[in-house]
């Protein structure tokens, strides 16, 4: 375990990288709320927020301030510790996934090769699944600790949705992993930099993964855990002030991270399309890579929003049917087909 042979510069480098990544994801999540509202406005022939600051750009700050100044309510009969733990867990798990995304290649800073990835672990994508499966607990603990049956039902609804779609998500990825032969996101990206993007090989896998990512992020049309209009809010019904804000904020961070993961897995990560970066100097290539990944991520976030403001919400049985009877068999078929193709091409070679 060489990781634990600690080295000052290494720790400092990683700490700075973690701080930067987390603050970037916070800012992106903050402005995702703004973009979401603007986007919704444009789709509905409105302007969206435009009062706070030029073009309403200060709106996220105003929203945050408002949440902080709201009254903090902890229900009398709730389990206080767990009630507070719920949003903390939601935030924590949302942030943790960002650790393994390769944000770019390597840069040379102060005579050291700095990789723009917090941790390149050999189980990469499985780590994401582990953390995502932990995300359920924030929801469930929060819903249960509220001591409100509607919160509890919503928490169960959300948890069972998350578990169901995690399966299809994992199965859709297995086909991709058979192609890449590696779980490390860094390796997967580097394969795409030199070769074609994975979306070319795995269009069905991408589709399944994308739908499941929508469901995992509780985005419309799968936003049943928090259907405020017809299902009496969601697991965060009893939450107020910034604790509610944390739950909602965690979802935007989740959306950002999952878009980054989709971009990494299927759209070449920090690869700039139609350009050969290998001729560039190290710094320029790294910065260009980061920008490329960010652009891809933002486009995916916009697609998430576009879908949200187009499609109506699923009914719960439709959601379960789609997950268990639609996506999982499709993912299995995709897996078998990919395996067959790999086997055939290997025999010919």
């Amino acid at each position: 375990m060489n990781l634990l042979a600690l080295d000052g510069a290494f720790v400092l480098e990683k700490l700075i990288l973690i701080a930067v990544v987390i603050s970037i994801s916070l800012v992106v999540a903050m402005y995702a709320t703004y973009v979401e509202r603007k986007f919704a406005g444009f789709i509905q022939d409105r302007h969206g927020p435009n009062r706070a600051g030029p073009f309403g750009l200060l709106q996220p700050l105003a929203d945050g301030l408002k949440l902080f100044f709201k009254e903090e309510i902890i229900p009398n009969n709730s389990n206080k510790l767990l009630f507070v733990l719920g949003p903390c867990l939601a935030m924590l798990t949302a942030m943790m996934t960002s650790a393994i995304i390769p944000w770019g290649g390597t840069v040379e800073l102060f005579g050291q090769q700095v990789s723009l990835q917090i941790a390149d672990i050999n189980i990469g994508i499985l780590y994401v699944f582990g953390v995502v499966s932990m995300g359920v607990y924030g929801m469930m603990i929060g819903g249960w600790a509220s001591n409100n049956k509607f919160s509890l039902m919503a928490a169960l609804r959300g948890a069972s949705q998350a578990i169901s779609y995690e399966l299809a998500m994992g199965l859709s990825l297995i086909a991709l992993l058979m192609l890449t032969g590696s779980l490390s996101l860094k390796t997967i990206t580097e394969q795409q930099v030199t070769g074609l993007w994975n979306i070319v090989y795995q269009p069905v896998g991408f589709l399944i993964f994308f739908v499941c990512a929508l469901a995992e992020c509780n985005r419309a049309p799968f936003d049943l855990p928090e259907a405020e209009s017809e299902l009496n809010m969601g697991y965060h019904q009893e939450y107020s002030s910034m604790k509610l804000g944390f739950f909602l904020f965690a979802e935007y961070i989740n959306m950002f991270i999952s878009c980054a993961i989709i971009a990494t897995l299927f759209f070449g990560g920090y690869d700039i399309p139609f350009v050969d970066e290998s001729t560039w100097s190290g710094g320029a290539a790294a910065i260009g890579g980061v920008l490329a990944l960010m652009t891809k991520t933002f486009i995916l976030i916009l697609v998430f929003m576009w879908i949200r403001w187009t499609l109506p919400r699923f009914r719960y049985d439709q959601l379960m049917n789609l997950g268990w009877k639609g996506l999982i068999p499709l993912a299995l078929l995709n897996m078998v087909a990919t395996g067959a193709v790999i086997l055939l091409t290997m025999k010919q070679a």
Partner: peptide, 18 residues
């Protein structure tokens, strides 16, 4: 779904009623 998304996309460029 694709057709629906095209419709919403077209609204992106319509005149705002506000």
């Amino acid at each position: 779904i694709f057709k629906g998304m095209l419709i919403t996309f077209r609204h992106f460029f319509k005149k705002r009623a506000t």
